[in-house]
């Protein structure tokens, strides 16, 4: 059962082609990692799934529905949630208000239920409930960004560099939570520079190089692959 399928997707920024025919498949209940160097097109791939920018050719199918030409707002309301690169929380709003924004299109009772669930996953956020989000540490902000994404009852969650700029101990916590999300039945698509931890956690992994998929295997095999070890795992 596939959750998200990309078939030969090309994406352009103006005249420049950033993705040269990418095909990726994410099955339900999996954690799939996408690794690659700076400028390989990882973020472009994620943004294309979200419809900004839209793919110039190819097909993107989310839970059996073709979303290639749908506007961003519609895609983001249909069971998909993203934790954007650099967290992008609403820094002037309190933690609680940030979470409520995440549940903008759900009912009040759903918000109440999901909020309790997020506080269960991240007790730190409960402590900071009425604090302005911008005054929290980087790790707490990342927790909030994940929590906010969970507020919309997503079937699938996309994480863009969740370990960016965080202390090793916090990264470990974040990855534990990501594993926990899979156990709850949420499909996870993880984009990381931190290849070692990302592949360790992942069921399967893709390696993206200059806008093309170079390798595709299980997480375990990729970790043992000498090419991957040389290029992404520091030998």
């Amino acid at each position: 059962m596939s959750m998200l399928v990309l078939e030969d997707v090309h994406t352009h920024y103006g005249k420049i082609e950033a993705l040269h025919g990418v095909s990726v498949e994410v099955n339900k209940g999996e954690i799939v990692s996408l690794i690659g160097a700076n400028g390989a097109g990882k973020t472009t791939l994620l943004m294309t799934v979200c419809g900004m920018p839209q793919a110039s050719s190819g097909r993107i199918i989310l839970e059996g529905r073709d979303i290639t030409n749908e506007p961003t707002a519609q895609i983001m309301r249909s069971g998909l949630a993203i934790v954007p690169e650099g967290r992008r929380i609403f820094s002037g709003l309190t933690v609680e208000e940030n979470l409520h924004m995440g549940g903008f299109f759900t009912s009040k009772s759903e918000i109440r239920k999901n909020q309790a669930h997020v506080y269960e996953l991240f007790p730190r956020l409960k402590e900071r409930e009425h604090q302005r989000a911008g005054t929290m540490s980087g790790g707490e902000q990342q927790m909030l960004a994940i929590g906010r994404a969970l507020m919309s009852n997503p079937h699938m969650i996309i994480l863009d560099e969740p370990s960016l700029g965080l202390a090793p101990l916090i990264i470990k916590q974040i990855f534990e939570i990501i594993g926990h999300l899979r156990d709850e039945g949420i499909t996870v698509f993880l984009v990381e520079q931190n290849a070692h931890q990302a592949l360790h956690l992942a069921d399967r992994g893709y390696v993206l190089e200059t806008g093309k998929i170079r390798l595709h295997d299980t997480g375990k095999n990729l970790l043992e692959n000498p090419d991957v070890q040389n290029a992404y795992l520091g030998g």
């Binding site: 707002a73 983001m76 949630a81 954007p84 919309s152």
Partner: peptide, 26 residues
């Protein structure tokens, strides 16, 4: 009302607001 909160969200961070499914146009 929700629309008021949507205004604030858009002011705070447009990309984040859109990633939550808010329509920039509306």
């Amino acid at each position: 009302m929700p629309v008021g909160r949507a205004w604030e969200a858009l002011r705070e961070d447009e990309i984040a607001a859109r990633s939550l499914g808010l329509s920039r146009t509306a």
